[in-house]
Design a protein around this nucleic acid. Structure first.
Length: 308
DNA sequence: TGCAGTGTTGCTTC
DNA sequence: CGAAGCAACACTGC
C-alpha cells in the first residue's frame, strides 16, 4: 500500500542497501502496460533502450517525490518508479531458473522474499556483486522509466505535484492555501489530490480526518480554522507515525527486505467499519461510505458533517 | 459462481 | 477549469 510513509520506508531501505551498487544486468517479463508510462516496454526495442541507458551505471542517491521513488545513477540519469497499488521493490539474492519461463526468478535469500511476491516479479536488476533489486507488482500498474536527472522534476511525471507535507517549509499557512484551491471540494478527495498535497492516499487521509474530527464529505470552505489546524497536525502526525512504524502492511506492503510495517495495527478508522470508535469518551461507531469511488471510514460521533 | 472490493492514477466526458 | 466515472489488472473474500 504505497502512500508517502510506505514509499519513504522503501526509499530508506534503498539508501541503506543499494547505494554504490553497479547495474550489471536487466531483465523484464515485458508484460506491464504501465512500464515507461506508455506501454512501450512491450516493444523489445524500447526495452533495449532502457537496458542500454542503465547498464553499467552506479546508484549514487535515492530520493522520494510524492509517491515516486527516484533512483539516481551516475551519468545524470534517474530511474523513476511509481508502485501504484501493489508494487514492491525487493532487495536480495535471486537466481534465474531456466525451466520456469513464467516466473524464472527464485529468491536464494532471505526466506522472507519467497511467496507471494516472487510470482509477480516484473523487472529485475542485477548488480555486479550478485545481489538483485526486483520489482514485484501483482496488478501491473507500476510505472518505471528512465529520465534525465536534471529534467525529472519538471517532467510530466512530477510537474504540478503539490508541496511535500513533511518538508520544513510546509506551514499551517501553506496547508490552508493549498486546500483553499478547492473550496467546494470534499475534504477527503482534496487531501488525496496529489496536485494539492503530495503523498496522502486513502489510509492516511482517513486516519488524518479521524484525528482532526472532520467528516470526509465536509466541503473545504466549511471547515472552521480550529479544525483546519487540527487537520494540519493530523496529516503531519499520521504520516510521521506511518514512517516511524515502517509503513502499513494491512494489505501487502513490504519493505525492500520483505518485512512488514506495523502501522496497520494503529488504525483508528481505516477498515474498522462497524467497530467502536477508540477516541476516549467518544462512544461512536466507525462507518463506511464511498467518496469519489474510494471507501472512506469515519466515526459517526466525532466526525459529523457541519450543517451549513 | 459471481460480484464487490483493494493501496493509485489518468483518460474521457460533461 | 473541475468534477465524476471508469479503466488498467490480479486476486481475495463473502
Amino acid at each position: 500500500m504505497p502512500e508517502l510513509p510506505e514509499v519513504q520506508t522503501t526509499v530508506n531501505g534503498l539508501r541503506r542497501h543499494v547505494l554504490g551498487k553497479k547495474i550489471a544486468g536487466v531483465w523484464t517479463s515485458y508484460n506491464s502496460p504501465y512500464f515507461a508510462g506508455s506501454g512501450t516496454i512491450k516493444d523489445p526495442a524500447y526495452f533495449r533502450t532502457f537496458e542500454k541507458q542503465i547498464l553499467g551505471r552506479t546508484i549514487v542517491s535515492v530520493d522520494r517525490r510524492a509517491k515516486n521513488i527516484l533512483i539516481n545513477l551516475d551519468g545524470g540519469l534517474t530511474i523513476l518508479v511509481h508502485m501504484k497499488m501493489t508494487g514492491h521493490l525487493l532487495y536480495g539474492r535471486y537466481r534465474f531458473v531456466a525451466d520456469k519461463p513464467k516466473d524464472p526468478w527464485q529468491p536464494i535469500e532471505p526466506e522472507s522474499l519467497k511467496d507471494p511476491f516472487n510470482r509477480h516479479v516484473r523487472l529485475m536488476l542485477t548488480f555486479t556483486d550478485g545481489t538483485n533489486l526486483a520489482l514485484s507488482d501483482m496488478r501491473k500498474f507500476a510505472k518505471v522509466l528512465v529520465a534525465d536527472t536534471r529534467m525529472i522534476h519538471t517532467s510530466d511525471h512530477l510537474d504540478g505535484i503539490g508541496p511535500e507535507p513533511l518538508e520544513r517549509g510546509f506551514t499551517l499557512k501553506k496547508f490552508a492555501e493549498c486546500l483553499a484551491r478547492r473550496p467546494n471540494g470534499k475534504i477527503k478527495q482534496v487531501l488525496m489530490d496529489q496536485n494539492i498535497i503530495a503523498g496522502v492516499g486513502n489510509i492516511y487521509a482517513d486516519e488524518s480526518l479521524w484525528r482532526a474530527g472532520i467528516h470526509p464529505l465536509e466541503r473545504v470552505s466549511h471547515i472552521p480554522p480550529a479544525k483546519l489546524t487540527a487537520l494540519y497536525k493530523g496529516v503531519l502526525s499520521t504520516l510521521k507515525n506511518g514512517i516511524d512504524f515502517g509503513g502499513d502492511s494491512m494489505s501487502d506492503y513490504r519493505n525492500i527486505l520483505g518485512e512488514r510495517g506495523e502501522f496497520q495495527g494503529k488504525h483508528q478508522a481505516y477498515r474498522r467499519t462497524g467497530l467502536k470508535c477508540r477516541k476516549p469518551g467518544c462512544g461512536g461507531t466507525i462507518r463506511r461510505l464511498v467518496v469519489g469511488g474510494r471507501s472512506a471510514h469515519y466515526c459517526d460521533q466525532h466526525q459529523k458533517l457541519s450543517r451549513k
